Simulated scan of single mutants.
Amino acid sequence: MDRNKLHLFVKATRSVYGPVDESSEQDAAEWTPPDKPGAGGYRGRYLWTDAFGVVNFITLFKETGSHKFLSLAKRLVQTVHDVLGRTRDGSSRLTGATEDHPLNGGLRIGKDSATGPDGDGQYHHYLTLWMFALNRLSLAAGDPAYNELAIELAQAIHPHFLLRRPSGCLRMVWKISMDMEDVLVPSEGHLDAATGYVVYRLLQHTAQIQSGGQATVLKREIDEYSEIMHREGKLTPSGDTLDLGMGLWMCHFFKGEGWADGLGEKALQMGHRLLGEDSSLMRRDASRRLAFREFGACLGIQCFGPDEYLRRRIEAVVGFWEKHLRDHTDEDLRPISQVMYAAAVIPGAWSSGYLGE
């Protein structure tokens, strides 16, 4: 354990969730995540940021051996389900959900506005990230209930994001309404199908381990994601640093499979261009860069496996933002930037094999 990295990791976590490192075991078991500033978004909850928060707490649990961080992860999960799993006024669960099955209605993004081009709704790539967080918590805590919740969410959202045309051809959509009844953005996220394929396979694998059998849960959904992701031109690296990184992150779980190795190697080459010291992005002033997107690239490259050049470039990018993050990050983006900074410093539970699976 690198104590300096751990110090930076904890400092970033404190900036979003408060002085949790100082809490006792009892405090952690009764903790309520702050709503101001919290993770940003609606009532302090933003699904992407809190997914990173959960996984980062698991990293702290493994790095320190303190069970209080596992308790904090559980409390954050419960709060997200109680806020983003309900209507915006908090009066009821989302359509289709019940107290016994809280994720049957999906989870809201947590946008401040209810409507409009950047209004609330449900994003596929946020939901799959939350499933991953639940899966990691299930493994870390040795509790199948969290993976079962992730599977519940996976099954609930799938038919609303994957639609079959009259021709019989499958397509995906990027954003749906809070009640999952309407398509809000009909275009397809660049790697949404591949990410769904990876995360659903992880959920299936964990179900097999925890049940001691050959679980076939999510087989149909996995087959449908596979159908879309293997179409010509789908498995290509992105020139966007966040997309590039998250693509590498998902590929690293299945290194050794042709599709993952092929996409991963192309993405690493793109990483050389994007993060190279002579790239146009790296020459920009901090005010013209987005920290959290670059942290996504750093996380993904580390998970997949950087060469020595990329290792040095990751250190340079993280070091750059250690000097500029506070002064050159919009207040609304600070929570997401801080949790992703922590993951870039210590990938931890984001990495395959870290939890012994």
Rank of each mutant, 00 (worst) to 15 (best):
V199I: 15
G142Y: 13
W48C: 03
W249M: 06
L203P: 03
Y123E: 08
L263R: 10
L274R: 07
V217T: 15
H124Q: 09
G245F: 07
W130E: 11
L60H: 07
C251G: 07
P237W: 03
A193C: 10
L76V: 07
I314A: 11
L202S: 03
E99M: 06
T98A: 12
D50M: 00
L275D: 08
M246E: 13
A97E: 05
H158P: 12
Q155D: 13
P34T: 10
T115L: 06
G119T: 03
D179V: 01
M340G: 01
T59A: 11
F304L: 10
S238V: 01
F161D: 08
V339N: 12
T49R: 04
D243C: 01
L137D: 06
F304Q: 05
G356L: 02
L76Q: 13
R75M: 06
R273I: 09
H7S: 14
R273W: 09
S138A: 15
H81Q: 14
G262Q: 10
D307G: 08
E315F: 00
D21Y: 11
F254Y: 15
G305V: 01
D330S: 05
G53H: 05
I157V: 15
Y309D: 11
Q269I: 02
N56L: 02
W350E: 04
D82Y: 00
K219H: 13
A193E: 03
N56Q: 08
G41R: 08
E181N: 08
L203Y: 05
V185M: 13
I157G: 11
E63G: 01
D143Y: 05
R14S: 11
G353S: 06
L107W: 14
Y146A: 03
G262A: 05
D21G: 09
G53L: 02
G38C: 10
M229D: 01
N56S: 07
R289Y: 04
R88T: 12
L290V: 13
L274N: 07
Q122H: 03
H101S: 15
D327H: 12
R273D: 11
S113R: 15
P166E: 15
A194G: 04
L263A: 04
D143C: 01
S187I: 11
P117A: 08
R283A: 13
S238E: 02
I301P: 09
L84N: 10
K5Y: 02
S15I: 00
G110T: 01
T13E: 14
E99C: 00
T195E: 04
R165W: 07
P33N: 05
L153M: 15
L333S: 13
G189R: 03
